[in-house]
Design a protein around this nucleic acid. Structure first.
Lengths: 207, 207
DNA sequence: GCAAATTAATGATTTATTCAAG
DNA sequence: CTTGAATAAATCATTAATTTGC
C-alpha cells in the first residue's frame, strides 16, 4: 500500500533529503481551479464526502493538477473545521507579531442589538444621525472576558465633534497589539509631515 | 455641482452648517489624513473593528473632517473585501464547476451525507491509494481574461516548471511568472483566499 | 484652459452564505 | 429542521479622475 516515493509524484519524507525549500516532494499544493471547485462543492453543501465522492472529485480535479484522494479528504476536513473556527473565534489566542502584520486579524465580532430590521447596518445601528432607540451595543461575551456595554453617539454628538476644530493635537497613535493576555506590543504611529495634520490620539490597547 | 437635495440619509441638516467650503451632503468623502490613518490601521492588522473601536476611531478621525461611525465600518468592510478581491484576481480562473458538481454529486447534488468527522485519514476509504494519473495541467488563466486556449503540460514539464525557481529580472517577467503554474501563484492565491487570520486582540482606547 | 462626457474608485446597500442554538 | 447572528460577496450609486472637443 504505502510504498513511499511511488505514490503519484508525492515523495513523503524520503530519508530527510528534501529541505523546506524543495517543492518536489512537499505537501499538496492545490491549484486555483482545484480550490475553486472544492470551495464550490463545499458551498453546495458538501461537508464530509463519501469515499466514492472523494474518488470522483479527486479524479476530476486531477485535470487541474496533481492531487490525491487523501488531499480531497483532508481539504474538506480542514475547511470544515476552519470555517467553524473562524466563526467561533472571537479573538483570544496568542499570536506572534510577524503573522499579525503579514496576515490579518480575526474577525472581531460584535453583536448589535437590533430592533427593527430594515438594513443590515448602520444608520440604524450606529445611528449617528438617525434617531434610534437602541443606543447600546454589547460585545459578545468572549471566553474569559466580560461583556462590555457601549454607548453610542447621541444625535448631537456629531455636532459637537464635527464643528470642532480640525486642528492638530500633539499626540500619537499607538497601537497595542496583544499577542498574549499579558504581553503587549506597541507600535508608534505618527502621520506624515507633509500636511502638518494633527497626529491622532489613538491608543490601541488590550481590553 | 452640489445639488443633491436628497442625500442618502447622510446629511440631516439642510443648508449651512458646513464650515469648509463646498462640503456637500452626499456620501462621505474621506480626507487624505483619514484615509491614511485608516490604511495604517488596516496595515497594522485591523480588519473588522468592534463597535467601540469604530466609535473611537471615528471620534479621532473627526478631527480631520466630517465622519461617522458607519463610515469607518463601511471603510473596513470595503477595504477588506477589495484587498481580498485584488488578491483573488491574480488567480481567478474559469472552471466548469457545474460539470464537476454533476460528476461528483451523483443524483441529488444537494442531498449530502453528513458523517461524523474522522480524526485521521481512514485507510478503509483509501486503502489502496488509487492514484490519479497526472498527465495534463491547465495553465492558470490571466486575470480578467477568458480562457479559450489551454496550455497543457506533460508531467515532466510540470516538474520542471514547478521546481524551477523563478528569478524575475523585471516586472514584466515577474508578471508573466505569476501566471504560470508555480508556487508563487499558488501562494498568492491562498493568501488572498484564506480568511483564516491569526487571532489577535485589538482594542481602541484613549490615552 | 474649461467644462461636458466618460471612466475609474470607492462609499453604501442588498443578498446569500455559514454555523449552531432551539 | 428551522431560524438567529453575523458577515462577506455582490451589487448599486455617487463621487473623483480623466479624456475630449472646443
Amino acid at each position: 500500500m504505502d510504498q513511499e516515493g511511488m505514490m503519484s509524484g508525492f515523495c513523503i519524507k524520503t530519508g530527510g533529503g528534501e529541505s523546506r525549500g524543495g517543492t518536489k516532494c512537499g505537501r499538496w499544493n492545490p491549484t486555483a481551479e482545484q480550490v475553486k471547485v472544492l470551495t464550490d462543492l463545499f458551498r453546495s453543501g458538501l461537508r464530509t464526502p463519501s469515499t466514492d465522492q472523494i474518488q470522483k472529485i479527486s479524479t476530476q480535479l486531477s485535470f487541474y493538477g496533481k492531487i490525491e484522494s487523501k488531499n480531497v479528504f483532508y481539504w474538506f476536513q480542514n475547511h470544515k473545521a476552519r470555517e467553524r473556527q473562524k466563526r467561533r473565534r472571537v479573538s483570544s489566542v496568542a499570536v506572534d507579531v510577524d503573522r499579525v502584520l503579514m496576515e490579518c486579524l480575526p474577525e472581531d465580532r460584535f453583536c448589535i442589538e437590533r430592533k427593527e430590521d430594515r438594513s443590515y447596518f448602520p444608520s440604524k445601528h450606529f445611528g449617528d444621525f438617525i434617531d434610534i432607540t437602541h443606543h447600546q451595543y454589547h460585545q459578545i461575551s468572549e471566553p474569559g472576558r466580560e461583556i462590555e456595554t457601549l454607548q453610542l453617539f447621541p444625535l448631537n454628538s456629531y455636532e459637537e465633534i464635527s464643528h470642532h476644530h480640525y486642528e492638530p493635537e500633539n499626540k500619537q497613535l499607538r497601537l497595542f497589539a496583544n499577542h498574549e493576555y499579558n504581553k503587549e506590543m506597541m507600535f508608534s504611529y505618527s502621520m506624515g509631515k507633509e500636511n502638518d495634520h494633527p497626529p491622532l490620539d489613538l491608543c490601541l490597547s488590550f481590553m
